[in-house]
Simulated assay, not measured.
Amino acid sequence: MRDGLDDGAAAGEGPIPDVLDAELCRRLFGSLHRSGQRVKAEQYVRGLLSVRGRKTLRSIAAQFDGASAQQNVHHFIASSPWEWVPVRHALARQAQRALAPQAWVIDSLLIPKAGPHSVGADPQPTPLGTVNGQQAVGTWLTSERAAVPVDWQLRLSARWTVEPLRHRASVPPDAVPGTVEECVRQAVVGLMGVGEMPRLPVVVDVAEADGISIARFLASTGLPFAVRVDAAAPVRIDRSLLPKYGDLLHTAGELSESLPHLRQQVNPGDGRTTAAAIPVSASPSGREAMTLLGECPPGRPAEPRLWLTNFTADRLAPALRLTRLPGVVERDCAEISDGVGLRDFAGRSFPGWHRHITLACVAHLVSAAARRGDVTHINRTTVR
């Protein structure tokens, strides 16, 4: 889980070229039925791009005209009846055209909070101890050069789905308490529902999730995938491909260490590395054939990085290329997303959180295009 400070981040702030033109706004906000909503969406994104420091509703309202600007911004985000999913779908299609992504990357994000009142805030375990905050699962369209967030799931504990918190936070009736694995499954279902998109691999790097469970779910979808798994994840050797080995249950870490003759030198595009591709089954029935990737990069700790994938052993290099993409997400989240207020929403409203983070994703796309010199490309891309 990637974490961050609740007081905002200065990373990525600075003058942003004006690439949020009328045509781009039409593509992104065309699902908003009222012209006033479309204007407010554009103004809100401009506020996220221009306000320095923490992006609060008050600081963003300073970009609006009129004495009731703060009230209008609060209403637009917290209670105005516009749906965020169509905006996210439009954003995904625009990011696909501008970015030519190689995969969807799903990862988790910790958003620390000072108190218990922000929607979804609960004690969250981290390697450094328990932190109060929100846990979200993000879906990013990612290439080797850039990543753009296009969808988010906010994990809710049981206390947020019963009264009085459900009513206070405007949590909808169909929102139920769930695990991180369930959030990841929702994210996969969500990306499969975006129209006019190419069939892309799915990369899941969520330490808090059961990687075996997620890999089985992805296998059922037929999508190409790579899922980061813990060394303790239980797997069996696929004896149809390695008949000389027993069918005892092993941990992924044990298999990676015990079959050194399967290791090979491979260059996935960023230099030579040592990796093994082991055919395994991730279910007791043996019906879910997958490949366990165990990589020991040069100069890294001895413990290998482990992934389950439906790429076969003869496609080791392209599979390893996919495992590099979460690093692009981590970099762009720190350099761009934090600077446009992705973690900054402090309200108690569930719809407000989703609307704010949706517009922060739009701001991320605009900022990424401007900073990486894609201004002309993002504005002249034709709608398919």
Rank of each mutant, 00 (worst) to 15 (best):
A158P: 03
L128R: 15
T142I: 04
Q124R: 12
H167G: 11
G115T: 13
P173F: 04
L109C: 14
G115Y: 11
L109R: 12
A146N: 02
Q134I: 07
R166T: 02
A95G: 05
R168F: 06
P172R: 10
L128D: 15
A169K: 02
V171W: 04
E144N: 12
V162T: 15
A100I: 04
Q135S: 01
V105T: 01
G115Q: 12
Q134Y: 06
K113P: 09
Q94R: 10
L154E: 01
T161G: 07
P164H: 06
V162Y: 09
S118N: 13
E144F: 04
Q102H: 14
Q134M: 03
P116S: 15
I106T: 02
A169P: 06
T142D: 05
V171F: 10
P164E: 05
Q94T: 06
T139A: 15
S118Q: 15
R145V: 11
V148Y: 00
G120F: 07
V148C: 06
P172V: 08
A146C: 07
A95R: 04
A103W: 05
E144V: 05
W140I: 00
Q135Y: 05
T142Q: 05
L165N: 11
V150Q: 01
P127L: 13
S118K: 07
A136R: 05
L154V: 04
A169T: 08
L109S: 15
R166K: 12
L99M: 08
R166N: 04
S118V: 10
V131Y: 06
Q124K: 12
A98E: 11
Q134T: 05
G133F: 01
L109A: 14
G120E: 08
Q153M: 10
P125K: 10
T139Q: 09
Q135A: 02
P123K: 12
P164S: 03
A98T: 11
V148T: 04
V137W: 03
A121P: 05
L109Q: 14
Q134W: 04
A114E: 14
V119I: 14
R166L: 00
V131H: 13
L109M: 13
A98W: 11
V137C: 10
R168P: 00
T130Y: 03
T126M: 04
Q124E: 14
P173Y: 02
R155W: 02
T161M: 10
Q102A: 15
D122P: 00
P172D: 08
Q96H: 09
L128S: 15
T130N: 07
T161F: 04
G115S: 15
P149L: 00
P164N: 03
Q94Y: 00
S170V: 05
P149R: 00
G129L: 06
V150E: 00
V105H: 01
R97F: 01
A121H: 03
W160A: 08
V131M: 09
P116N: 13
G115M: 03
P173I: 00
E144T: 10
P172G: 12
V171S: 12
I106P: 09
A100W: 10
A169G: 15
L128W: 10
L165I: 02
